[in-house]
Design a protein around this nucleic acid. Sequence first.
DNA 1: GTCGCTGCAAAGTCTTTGCAGAGAG
DNA 2: CTCTCTGCAAAGACTTTGCAGCGAC
Lengths: 156, 156
Amino acid sequence: MNSNNTFTHRTVEYEILLERFKELLKKNGYKYTIQREVILETLYKSDEHLTPEALHQLIKEKFPELKTGIATVYRTLSLLEDSDMVTSLSFGSQGKKYELGAKEHHDHMICTVCGNITEFVDEEIEHRQHIIAKEFGFKMQEHSMQIYGICKNCQN
Amino acid sequence: MNSNNTFTHRTVEYEILLERFKELLKKNGYKYTIQREVILETLYKSDEHLTPEALHQLIKEKFPELKTGIATVYRTLSLLEDSDMVTSLSFGSQGKKYELGAKEHHDHMICTVCGNITEFVDEEIEHRQHIIAKEFGFKMQEHSMQIYGICKNCQN
DNA sequence: GTCGCTGCAAAGTCTTTGCAGAGAG
DNA sequence: CTCTCTGCAAAGACTTTGCAGCGAC
């Protein structure tokens, strides 16, 4: 943690993540399939927040022999989201982007020019959120925050 | 502002809002139409955050003689959003909800059971957001924050 | 009168579903 | 073997667009 309480997230090891995923499948009577692993892996390897379509594209490029269908991508993303392994972000006009949720909690700073997303965490904000929820008698489950603006690169 | 810096928003008078809207239309060479006013008025009178469909439904009930089409609702919402008079919120699985943005800036607390939305503002959080953006060399344009949880009513 | 606006219906997106065959357990 | 999963295509949900007539200015 740096001097002013703001830092970026860290990720868990892929093996741990995969293990967790397999347990999850077993526990719920789902089957382990290569498509599901490939989706998890691609999501893990990507530093970006992906749309279902972008994810599908990436998979088609890296694993063309699988012929993974877009429907499977959607179905697996829903499955992962229901199990809290991925989180979705809703954007401006349409579509959603997904990211692995096994990372630490963090918020997002979104560039309105290039669309890139920077993640951050701020302890002070996290703290205030709990206080506010309490104040309204609200039982907080989760929260998200987005800052929209123009990133360093795009300011040129 | 109360003792702990958190408070709910206040709204502007409808007449002022309407005036602003008319000026906006004139300035951009748009025409004033009864449909546009009805959409603004309905948004104003509703305490809720409305989906385009819900808004359309309300208008059909209150002004059945207008036979306002859903397309006009969408077109007017876009117009209002482009002019920063309304703000849209994207949610869970699909759809968007709109609210008048002429109110003070505020954040949202969303009940995951009944879907109701409570608004709030917290000075401390607003402040931290500016600091964080600065830290990343980010030129902040706007921001939004949502707290998801179970509201007082639904906890029973 | 002109030119933008509207309602309607058709066309687009993005996402979900039905189905028959493939494959995990 | 059984029963879930998958790919494909068709169906859905939500939003946008094209067009001819209507209406603000």
